[in-house]
Simulated assay, not measured.
Amino acid sequence: MDLATITRFLPDEDATLQLGESWAATVMPPLVVYLQGDLGAGKTTFTRGLLRGAGYKGAVKSPTYTIVESYPLPRFTLLHHFDLYRFASPEEWQDAGLDDLFASNCLCLIEWPQQGGTFVPAADLTVMLEHDGTGRKCTLTAHTEKGKKSLETWLN
C-alpha cells in the first residue's frame, strides 16, 4: 500500500466529520495542510471534525470573510484555519502578515491555497474533497516526510 496517498469515500457529512475526528487523535504539528475542493465539498466540515476530535468545544465557522480563524487546543498551541478564496492577488497574504501565524506548535489548514501564490508555505499534506455521486471522495496526499509520517501514524 502506498502510504503517500490515501483515498476514502465519504457517503455523507457525518462521515466527513468522523474522518477529521479520527485524524485528530494522531496529528502532530507543526504541519501545513492544504484543503482543496469546490465550494461545498466539505473543507470546513472536515476542519470541524478535526477540531472536535482535538478537543475544541466552541463554534467552528468558515473563515471566508475573516481570512483566518484560530483555535486554542489542549494537545497543541493552535490550529489556524485559513480561507484565501476572496484574495484578489497573492500579495494579500504578505500584506495581511499571515506568515506570522506559522509557529512550531501550530497546525495550519489552508483552503484555496493557490490564491496566495508563492507566499503560502508549502504543504506537508493535501486533503482533496471532491463530489462523488451523493457523497464525497477524500484523497489525502503526503508531500513531505512529516506529512507521510502523519498519514502512517493515523493508519496505524
Rank of each mutant, 00 (worst) to 15 (best):
Q94I: 01
A142R: 00
E130H: 10
S104L: 13
D132M: 11
M128V: 11
P90Q: 01
T139S: 14
T144Y: 00
S104R: 12
H80A: 04
T144R: 01
G133N: 09
V127C: 14
L129N: 12
L107G: 09
W112P: 12
T126Y: 02
T118N: 11
L101D: 00
A88G: 15
N105L: 01
L84P: 07
Q94W: 00
C108I: 03
E92N: 05
L107T: 05
D83M: 08
D100V: 04
M128Y: 05
Q115M: 15
E145K: 14
Q114F: 07
A142D: 03
L151Y: 03
F82H: 01
F119W: 14
T126A: 13
I110A: 05
A103R: 13
G147T: 02
T134P: 10
E91D: 15
K148D: 08
P121I: 04
L125Q: 03
A96C: 11
S89Y: 10
G117V: 05
G97T: 05
E92D: 10
K146F: 00
W93G: 03
L78S: 09
G117D: 01
G116P: 02
T118H: 10
T126E: 13
P121M: 04
D100R: 12
P121R: 00
T141K: 14
P121V: 02
K149N: 14
Q114V: 11
S104K: 13
S150C: 15
G135S: 08
T141C: 09
F82L: 05
H80V: 06
W112I: 10
S104A: 15
E130N: 12
E145T: 14
L98Q: 05
P113I: 10
L98C: 07
D132V: 00
L101K: 08
L107Y: 08
G97D: 07
T144F: 00
E130W: 04
V127S: 08
W112Q: 12
N105T: 11
D100H: 11
T134K: 14
V127L: 15
L140Q: 06
L98F: 15
E92A: 06
D100S: 15
